[in-house]
Amino acid sequence: MSMAWSFRFLEEIALADVAFEAEGESVEEVFRGATQAILETMANPATVSGGWERAIERSDADPSVLLFDWLSEVVYWKDAAGVVFQEAPLTLTREGDIWLLRAHLIGAPVDQQTQELHADVKGVTKHLYELKQTGGRWKVRVVLDV
């Protein structure tokens, strides 16, 4: 099954940090791609069981701002709840001028014995941050401070 979204880590920018580009057929799909990229930056989701869940709803007129805030919220819960994530199913709808994100963060408390942990993301930066539509696909470039 081919996915409607994808992401790849970028190597030539911000050497000490982690940069990725996510893309998708729609704004919603690019949200999914970027979410998966940030989850995988912190830990291998396949090694994280469930057990911790948080429903999150956010809205903004600008999908670029909404995505930035959403990714920042994922980073926040990593520290505030001491968890890493298995998945974050989400839907993005548009009501008038407002984009509405409904997401479910699913993860588990950090366990160094059972989880494959990666980088402790400090923040989502605005450096080179851009959400745009090119060639019929939506793309976002994100640099994470790690």
């Binding site: 912190m42 830990a43 990593k78 520290d79 001491g82 968890v83 890493v84 408390p109 950090v110 160094q112 942990l117 990666h118 980088a119 402790d120």
Partner: peptide, 10 residues
């Protein structure tokens, strides 16, 4: 053991 390190450590 005494100095926690890594993602989400408290």
């Amino acid at each position: 053991r005494k100095v926690p390190a890594g993602v989400g450590a408290s």
